[in-house]
């Protein structure tokens, strides 16, 4: 869990947190864990929605001081 890659998408409107996450997921290897940092209110819902539909694994999701910390494991 300690060597997961951080995708820092705080305070960005374009390309936006989910698009940033997809970019880095494409570069990652199967089994890698990425942690998305996002200040977008919608990330708490739209990131898990995509993770579920794309068949990856949502490891954890929490909001700390206005920042979403969402961990995803690449499954395929």
């Amino acid at each position: 869990m300690n060597d997961c890659k951080i995708v820092d998408a705080r305070n960005t409107f374009c390309p936006g947190p989910l698009m940033e996450l997809i970019t880095y997921m494409k570069q990652a290897s199967v089994g890698d864990t990425l942690e998305l940092l996002s200040t977008d209110d919608g990330s708490g819902a739209d990131v898990p929605e995509w993770v579920n539909k794309a068949g990856h694994e949502l490891v954890s999701k929490e909001r700390v001081e206005g920042v979403w910390h969402i961990r995803i494991r690449k499954a395929k």
């Binding site: 374009c14 936006g16 989910l18 698009m19 995509w50």
Partner: peptide, 10 residues
């Protein structure tokens, strides 16, 4: 489109 709405900027 890749994400859950028709453009990344809400």
């Amino acid at each position: 489109y890749p994400i859950g709405r028709i453009h990344t900027i809400e």
